[in-house]
């Protein structure tokens, strides 16, 4: 079931333009940014589009946090530090391969 609001942009991998907020929904891989929080509710935004979601599964959600949203609920916060570490790892791999080739 697809809570797929996919994401509108295309790039070198041929990612097709799709609706930001369709009826078909799949695991949305694109993190959304919290704009404001009030109790269990929060306003999130992606590419300028805003959406109300439920944040009861998060510990201390704050404006500015990136979250993964599924079926109208934030299921987890994105850890920016971990994201940077993973990207560093990719950089190292690329550098290694460029050295060896």
């Amino acid at each position: 079931m697809n809570i797929c609001y996919s994401h509108s942009r295309s790039n070198n991998f041929g990612l097709k333009n799709t609706n930001f907020y369709g009826v078909k929904i799949m695991c949305l891989a694109v993190p959304m940014k919290i704009i404001s929080v009030e109790g269990d509710n929060a306003l999130v935004s992606l590419d300028g589009l805003e959406k109300k979601i439920d944040v009861r599964f998060l510990k201390n959600p704050l404006p500015g946090d990136y979250v993964i949203v599924h079926a109208g609920f934030a299921i987890e916060k994105l850890d920016e530090e971990e994201a940077r570490k993973t990207l560093e790892l990719f950089k190292d791999i690329t550098a290694e391969l460029n050295k060896s080739s």
């Binding site: 994401h7 790039n11 070198n12 991998f13 990612l15 694109v30 993190p31 990136y66 994105l78 920016e80 994201a83 940077r84 990207l87 990719f90 950089k91 791999i93 690329t94 391969l97 460029n98 080739s101």
Partner: peptide, 20 residues
């Protein structure tokens, strides 16, 4: 950082595919 484009970098993608 929006945590999207960085994970779609074509150069790194090709490098990983070669390693695979």
């Amino acid at each position: 950082m929006r945590f999207i484009d960085e994970f779609r970098d074509p150069e790194r993608t090709r490098a990983l595919a070669r390693e695979i």
